[in-house]
Design a protein around this nucleic acid. Structure first.
Lengths: 394, 394
DNA sequence: TTGTATGCGTTATCAT
DNA sequence: ATGATAACGCATACAA
């Protein structure tokens, strides 16, 4: 950790709010507001069904109020296929609905129609800018399709993935988008495969973002070729002694980026030494640790490729803490081009991935008419050279 | 915009994926995968109800398979109140369910039970790290409560807020969390108020994160006192000539932070000149623009307070582009302590807000037993002094 | 064009 | 302890 905080009580631990609210044990925290509970008079009749007194207005009530039949009310309000309801009747119904503040019950509609209006999104961590960008894209596409987005964060725990698929299966979500690279772990991949098969068996469609190995439609990010292009660009800038922060060895996205980088370097006749590759977590702290080890124990390098931007930022921090100047002493490059990180100094060389568009594409893929074979959509990255890897004359 | 990109085709515009997929018009983009559509043999009987051949297995089928009644099957599988079902029968049912891959229909359960298992979250932009942190907290609390999280992004369009409330009302969500500060705009606030009232009338509960002016439970972030504490800390560090990037004038969070800062300075006998406050958007670009104007047209300053971290980052970029060095020529401070931004250089002085905990607190507030009067939970910030505002001897 | 009646999948209230 | 059966709120096939 960089000792950059001059006065920072409780560095990384989440700081609890005013009241002792660590999160788990806050039933009804008291602020300045009055907190009389008044678990008072709710006639056992009124609370019959979970919701409040009187409860939501039903379509039957609207129909009665408007003096028409249930069917007519239904037709007037959604005007589906046989949109045939006399104008004056329709208005009566609409007026009644307005007056009674009618709100159609989406669950009941789902039952009657046999399909829901919800879309599931499963990712590792919504607080990670990589995933939140994808989520933004999925959200956009979902809104266009008039679907509500149900979000599930696995907190980096792969065993939660299939569990969330089950949840979304129960909800009968129209489709599920699974973001986040696969791991090289047959067990969890198999669990995921069967969970997804089950979901599809129940009628839902699926799109993956990552590696195409779960037999479903997949948006494939060109990790390999993007990293290769980056390697060539850096080589063209005069860099010759490369280091890599490679992420976890079983992380397929990390692995693809590493091998793309390595193979390009080999083709350039500038092979990557094995000791110049540091495995580490796929996070900021992972980048920090990996860089620390690499600079301390590894061969001398003049540029380090971190397999994602967040790691690259950690790497820069590590370099600073070791008194190694970036880019003067060592260049640093990342991958993703995270928007929030575009203003760091020195500006980070990276491979831009249009994450929002990836989210949109995945959603559209999942929502498209089902195909007989898994479809693949390839998304290219763009090398973006910035100050963190200035041209260097050896 | 900082000209930091050395070779960056298409600077800010979202770069479309390989295929011409701008997002709107991508029905079924073709990658390298086979894309035979095969809208083939689906008997009109099979697709009767939206979902796939055979469709999801129902509880009746499980009951039949197990040779018990529907009621028994139901009891065996969820074991509710009167959890009384003979062991052998239960096992028969469970086995049948397993065999048939039964998945209970959450919509049907919601209807029968009269309550759903979903929680709504409305925010401005999930890609903004401020909101994605809150979303992470809400997601955590939602999972603990066994609720599915439905996410709605307004894309900074206040008119969408009440529309999303209506959507969640139709879904009969158990509760709605509304994140993102209010604006000083009676019209949209009123629309929101009535939409929320409608939702609560339908039986849902609500918690707000922001200003307590919608008559509902609210998590209040101590913007005023946090900014005041920051002002005092900076003053103690020797700063005397202050500037502020104040955000939009009708943005209540921005306004609270500005006034807290201003009032503290007045108490310190060091009043803030009106020309030293630049109004601007609440975004990175807003910070960039505001800083540019301030440095060019404003009075000389030795420290600038941006009312959030993202703006502060934009301000630093603007300073760089103008050849003004931070912190040597001018100090910069922000607000929020966004995690992703903790590694920027120079490290940013800010007011830490425990955003994840805020999300958790709001969720627990919304899920707690309803009270007669709106409850308030106050969350304090913590001043964190870092390199961007070193002690200065005047 | 409108109304009647049935079904969606589940829970819960009754009898047994 | 178990089994019929009536809701739940809506859409829709069919009849009028």
């Amino acid at each position: 950790m960089p000792p950059t905080d001059l006065a920072d009580p409780g560095a990384d631990a989440p700081v609890p709010p005013t009241a002792p609210t660590t999160g788990a044990d806050l039933p009804v925290p008291e602020g300045s507001g009055v907190v009389e509970d008044a678990a008072a008079a709710v006639s056992s009749d009124e609370r019959r069904r979970g919701r409040s007194p009187g409860g939501p207005v039903t379509l039957s009530q609207v129909a009665r109020e408007a003096g028409v039949s249930l069917a007519t009310a239904s037709r007037a309000i959604n005007g589906s296929a046989n949109r045939t309801v006399r104008a004056d009747l329709r208005e009566r119904v609409l007026a009644a609905a307005e007056r009674l503040r009618y709100s159609p019950d989406a669950n009941a509609q789902a039952m009657a129609r046999g399909r829901t209006t919800s879309l599931g999104l499963i990712l590792h961590d919504i607080a990670d800018p990589y995933f939140s960008s994808i989520a933004a894209g999925v959200g956009l596409a979902a809104e266009r399709a008039d679907l509500a987005l149900t979000l599930a964060s696995t907190q980096h725990d792969p065993t939660r993935e299939p569990r969330f698929v089950d949840v979304l299966t129960r909800q009968r979500a129209r489709a599920i988008i699974v973001a986040g690279g696969r791991r090289d772990d047959d067990e969890t991949n198999d669990a995921m495969r069967t969970a997804l098969a089950n979901f599809r068996h129940s009628g839902g469609s699926v799109a993956l973002i990552g590696q195409p190995l779960l037999d479903v439609d997949t948006v494939v990010i060109a990790n390999h070729s993007g990293a290769a292009a980056l390697a060539r660009a850096l080589h063209a800038h005069g860099y010759r002694r490369f280091g890599v922060l490679g992420g976890p060895t079983d992380h397929l996205t990390a692995r693809d980026r590493l091998t793309g980088f390595r193979e390009a370097l080999e083709e350039l006749g500038c092979p990557l030494a094995e000791e110049a590759v540091a495995s580490c977590a796929f996070t900021r702290d992972g980048g920090y640790d990996g860089m620390t080890r690499l600079l301390r124990d590894g061969p001398p390098v003049d540029v380090v490729f971190a397999v994602n931007d967040v790691m690259a930022v950690g790497a820069m921090a590590a370099a600073r803490d070791l008194g190694v100047r970036v880019p003067r002493d060592v260049g640093v490059a990342g991958f993703d081009d995270i928007v929030t990180l575009r203003d760091i100094t020195p500006a980070l060389t990276t491979v831009r991935v249009p994450l929002v568009d990836v989210g949109i594409a995945a959603t559209e893929l999942a929502l498209a008419a089902p195909a007989t074979e898994p479809r693949l959509v390839h998304v290219e990255g763009t090398v973006v050279l910035r100050e963190s890897t200035p041209p260097r004359r050896p």
